[in-house]
C-alpha cells in the first residue's frame, strides 16, 4: 500500500497500510517512542483503504480491512483516520488473537502486581486507567488485558489511551499537550482524543505482572464496594472476552485460574475522585 507504519505494542506487532498519508503521519507521531515488530514480522495487518479509487480524494471515506474483518464495519471520514487505524488494530486483536486470553479490560500495575478494571463500556475504565497512571501506577493497557494461559501472568498492551467525551477534559487538564492526539469530533462514539502512555508504561511494556485484584467499576452511583462471587466473575469475564471460546481448554484453564486466584469487587462511584479513592481502598484491602 502507499503508506505504511509498523509498531509493536507489548507482545503484538502491527502493520498498518493506508491509501492516505494523514493517518500514517499521526500514527508515526503518537507512536514515535514505540518499538517495531520483532524480527520485522508483525502479528497482524490492518488496511485503511478507499472503497473506490476516486473516493481517495472525493469525500474520502476510510474503509477498515486487514487479516480479520467484520463485514458490517462502516467507513469513517478521513479526518477520523487515526480512529480507523485504532479500530482496525483492536479488531485484529478481538478476532485474531489466539495466544493470550483477551479480556476487555484496563490493567494497571504497582509493585509488580496487576489490577484489572473491567465492565461494560461507559464504566470509565480508560479514564480510570489514565488517571491511575498519573498517580503512581504503571499503565498496562486501557482496552485489553492479555492473560497468558501458560503462566497466569498479564502482559501489557499499552496502546494509545482512547479518551471519550467528558473524560477528554478531565485527563487533558493533567497531562502535557504533547502527549495528546488531535481532537476527533463527531465520531460514532462522540468526541475522542488519544493519550500517549507515559514513559513508565513504554519502558515496562515487556514486563508482565501477576494479577492481584479484579474490579468492576460502575459510574453514577453513591460510593459502594461489594465482593463478587467467583461464579459471577467467571460469567462476566467470559462475556468480556472476545476469544474465550476460540481458546478452548487453554481459555478455560486461564480463566478459572484467574477467577479462583484473584479477589474481585464491584465498586460504584459518583465521580472520578471518588473512584480513585475506592480503587486505592480496595487495593489496600485485597
Amino acid at each position: 500500500m502507499r503508506h505504511v507504519f509498523q509498531v509493536r505494542i507489548g507482545p503484538v506487532g502491527f502493520r498498518i497500510g493506508s491509501d492516505w498519508r494523514a493517518p500514517i503521519a499521526q500514527l508515526e507521531a503518537l507512536y514515535a517512542a514505540y518499538p517495531k515488530p520483532v524480527d520485522g514480522v508483525p502479528d497482524f495487518t490492518v488496511r485503511l483503504f478507499a472503497a473506490r479509487s476516486w473516493r481517495r480524494v472525493v469525500r474520502p471515506a476510510v474503509m477498515i480491512g486487514g487479516d480479520y474483518v467484520l463485514p458490517e464495519a462502516a467507513p469513517l471520514p478521513l479526518a477520523q483516520g487515526l480512529l480507523a487505524a485504532e479500530m482496525g488494530m483492536n479488531l485484529q486483536m478481538a478476532l485474531g488473537q489466539r495466544h493470550f486470553l483477551l479480556l476487555h479490560a484496563a490493567v494497571v500495575e504497582r509493585d509488580g502486581q496487576a489490577l484489572i478494571l473491567t465492565g461494560v463500556s461507559g464504566a470509565g475504565k480508560s479514564t480510570l486507567a489514565a488517571l491511575l497512571s498519573l498517580r503512581g501506577w504503571r499503565l498496562m493497557g486501557d482496552e485489553f488485558a492479555l492473560l497468558d494461559p501458560a503462566t497466569g501472568l498479564l502482559h501489557a498492551f499499552p496502546r494509545l489511551v482512547s479518551l471519550k467525551n467528558a473524560s477528554v477534559a478531565t485527563v487533558a487538564a493533567e497531562v502535557p499537550v504533547d502527549r495528546l492526539g488531535p481532537v476527533l469530533e463527531g465520531t460514532p462514539k462522540g468526541t475522542i482524543r488519544h493519550l500517549v502512555p507515559d514513559a513508565a508504561a513504554l519502558a515496562g511494556m515487556d514486563v508482565p505482572a501477576r494479577p492481584a485484584l479484579i474490579l468492576f467499576p460502575s459510574f453514577g452511583y453513591e460510593s459502594a464496594t461489594r465482593d463478587v462471587a467467583q461464579s459471577e466473575v467467571f460469567v462476566r469475564l467470559t462475556q468480556a472476552s472476545t476469544n474465550y471460546v476460540a481458546m478452548g481448554e487453554r481459555g478455560f484453564d486461564a480463566l478459572t485460574g484467574l477467577v479462583q486466584g484473584v479477589p474481585a469487587r464491584a465498586i460504584d462511584y459518583p465521580d472520578t475522585d471518588g473512584a480513585i479513592a475506592l480503587v486505592e481502598a480496595a487495593w489496600a484491602a485485597r
Binding site: 514480522v41 489466539r98 478452548g248
Partner: peptide, 21 residues
C-alpha cells in the same frame, strides 16, 4: 523459522485444533 513467525504459527495450529474439535 524466525521466533515471531514461530509464535504466530503455533497459535494458528492451536486455533485449527480448536476448530477441529
Amino acid at each position: 523459522v524466525p521466533p515471531s513467525v514461530a509464535h504466530i504459527l503455533a497459535d494458528a495450529r492451536a486455533s485449527a485444533e480448536q476448530g477441529r474439535v
